[in-house]
Write a protein that binds this DNA or RNA. Structure first.
Lengths: 229, 229
DNA sequence: CCCACTTTGTGCGTGCTTTCACAAGCACGT
DNA sequence: ACGTGCTTGTGAAAGCACGCACAAAGTGGG
């Protein structure tokens, strides 16, 4: 039994969201043969403040050496372990449209740890095709696929109208981690973790800031066609 | 001249990130013929707390009626205007791989307001092909395309190694809003707004929480292959 | 052995975000 | 005209996140 690191349970959510960035940066350093790195250098490569980086890492325990920095190899391992990447996660993708295919073919899932175990679609003309070395299965087999392949993460790339039904089936099949690309708010029971990735939200946020930068130069004229009732 | 709403400059970032969700929810209500909605109902449809929703909307001005709720139609317009969706944003996508094609074909950009103006790629065998009713152009024409088509938002769907170079060219061509799908931290000057969308980060965050839910059952055994030096 | 130098880990002040709880305001029925 | 009931808008408090600045801890040279 290894001695448990002195980290307390409860890493701040904001820190968790940055750990993958640090991990990727560290792996790039490792590939370049770097053995140790200071918080200053790592932080600037990861695009954050060095104090923030040190505080983030301090939540995992004290893995640095004062006067020297962090051992890249060791830190890679500790972050991987904390994120749960030392185990193997089976992922199922539902909705094999353009986006689903793009994800299926996106081989480098950042780091290892994730394995695409199944592709499912509702369209009969899609079922049976081979995408990224996998046969596309029919959505009706979701429950058995989840069970048989040990799927623990579900990815939804269906049209918006189908997403809630797929999410519900995932949850009832025992999947409690869902990554949703469909532009809808999913309703799931407590204990199920949903993360959403939404292109149009990101664009709208960019537009907001861009408009602000431009000084709202067009706000003098209300567009025609909106009669206030 | 319309009377300027009493909103002060400076909507909190957290609020801005939620406005697109409210907007989409409201549009769904509108399509269903709903005329007014209470903060309670809208909040639950958007998946947030009703007090938060009201405070968010209060930053845009007072568009509700006590005892009744919000007029759906009017609120849709106000949020659209605040987000800058009443104008037309020209978007260029660089990197027409699986993901770039998926985005190009993703017709419904949530709401209107965004128009894909150009697709660019570095691969000569891709240049000239027609994707989503547009001819794919060569990356070397980026500067002229940005100028001629008035591109104000750049989307990067290239491999990681190419992303920084594309970002730099976008910035020098005058684009100051960038949406980055490549798994790298982009380095851009102040005043340029970069948002990133990163599949593998989202998966890793899901894995972290899933592992935590499972009670870290596997942490007893250190994997072989890591000799601590 | 000691001193100068480097870099980590963290206490603390500051500002942002969320949530509660309630006064203020509006509609509607009588 | 007035009271009842509902819903908004917001003050205030609690919680979280960020970043400064510095003590603690290690390295290496003399």
């Amino acid at each position: 039994m290894t001695s448990r690191p002195p980290r307390e349970r409860g890493i701040p959510e904001a820190t968790v969201a940055r750990l993958p960035v640090y991990l990727r940066t560290l792996q790039a350093l490792q590939d370049r043969g770097t053995l140790t790195v200071s918080s200053e250098d790592l932080a600037s490569a990861a695009g954050v403040n060095s104090a923030k980086l040190r505080k983030d890492l301090s939540h995992l325990g004290s893995y640095g050496t004062r006067g020297v920095g962090y051992e890249v190899r060791y830190l890679v391992y500790q972050i991987s372990r904390e994120l749960g990447l030392t185990q193997d996660w089976a992922v199922a993708i539902v909705g094999i449209g353009n986006l689903g295919r793009a994800l299926a073919n996106y081989g480098g899932f950042g780091t290892r740890g994730f394995r695409i175990a199944a592709l499912l679609d509702a369209d009969p003309t899609m079922v049976g095709r081979r995408v990224a070395s996998l046969d596309v299965g029919h959505i009706d087999t979701l429950e058995s696929v989840v069970r048989d392949k040990g799927v623990s993460i579900g990815v939804i790339t269906t049209p918006a109208v189908a997403a809630q039904a797929v999410a519900t089936r995932f949850v009832e099949a025992g999947v409690s981690s869902i990554l949703n690309f469909a532009p809808v708010v999913l309703n799931v029971p407590d204990g199920v973790d949903v993360r959403k990735v939404d292109l149009s939200i990101e664009l709208q946020i960019l537009a907001f800031h861009a408009q602000r930068r431009n000084g709202d130069e067009d706000h003098g004229a209300e567009p025609a066609g909106l009669e206030l009732t």
